Simulated assay, not measured.
Amino acid sequence: MYNTILTELENGTLIITINRPDKMNALNRDVVGDLGKALDEVYSNPEIRSAIITGSGEKAFVAGADISEFTSIGPDGGEAIAKRGRELVFDKIENCPKPIIAAVNGFSLGGGCELAMACHFRIASSNAKFGQPEVNLGLIPGYGGTQRLTRLVGKGRAMEMLLTADMIGADDAKAAGLVNHVVAPAYLLAKAKEILQKIHTKSPLPVAAIIACVNECADGDHHGFDKEIKRFGQCFATEDMKEGTSAFLEKRKPVFKGK
């Protein structure tokens, strides 16, 4: 089904592995297309409750874009590459109503760092390295890197990383707010699965609503408070809200049905 990625559904979590280890899992047109298809499956398949995106091997999550695709295009072609990536993959990840975690193993540079940042949050192996080196190529990030990095680490840190192209290690990335957890490489996927299994015990309806609300805040939506109130009210129309409150009062674990 896919040429450049591997997928495995395990306990409701779709594990998506970018599989170009000989190219450090670099993003090219085929990878973007395959990721787009896999994300469509995440959206449409009710058996999928969440997803993990990672890279094959321990050296790289995604070491950047495949620069060989850039050499013969002009401004319109550059815009088209960025627009296609955002529509097929990056915005689709960020706006997915199901949680998507980046399990970052090794280098996460350029488009790879942007891919990780599009996920709802990130877990890094202790050998992970993050950076946006596009300025070294006479370019800027094109998949949302200038925007998402600034939101995650703040203007000053983002400006320095983008302008110097310096990489930062996993511990510095955690301190900056770029990643949530740093673990030994052998435990990377296990940690991501552990967190998602905890989220799977919640109702998928408020999970989706929380993702939407947090994204609106990150986007600077001035109507975020009003939209939160609206979604809060909508929860009261669900069977899961009635089950959750009843279970709490009856001192038992709720059994959510996603209705």
Rank of each mutant, 00 (worst) to 15 (best):
S44R: 15
N95D: 12
T201R: 15
F248C: 10
E250C: 14
C119W: 02
A186M: 14
V255S: 13
K202S: 12
A51H: 07
H200C: 07
F248W: 07
V179M: 08
E160N: 12
E58I: 12
K230I: 08
G85E: 05
G169A: 03
L196P: 01
V214D: 03
L137G: 11
I53Y: 03
S108A: 15
K251R: 09
A65R: 01
N180M: 13
A218M: 14
K155L: 13
G142W: 02
A118W: 00
P97D: 14
Y187D: 15
R49I: 08
F225K: 10
A60Y: 00
V31Q: 01
S56M: 10
H223K: 12
T17E: 13
L9P: 04
T71M: 14
T13P: 00
I101F: 13
N127Q: 12
L27G: 00
F236K: 13
M24P: 00
K230H: 09
G85T: 09
L88I: 09
N136S: 13
K129Y: 09
C213T: 15
K230F: 12
T54V: 10
G131C: 07
G169F: 00
M1H: 14
G244Q: 01
F256R: 02
I73R: 14
F130Q: 00
K253V: 11
R122W: 04
S246K: 15
L109D: 00
E228V: 15
K259I: 06
I101M: 07
V89G: 02
N105E: 10
C113L: 13
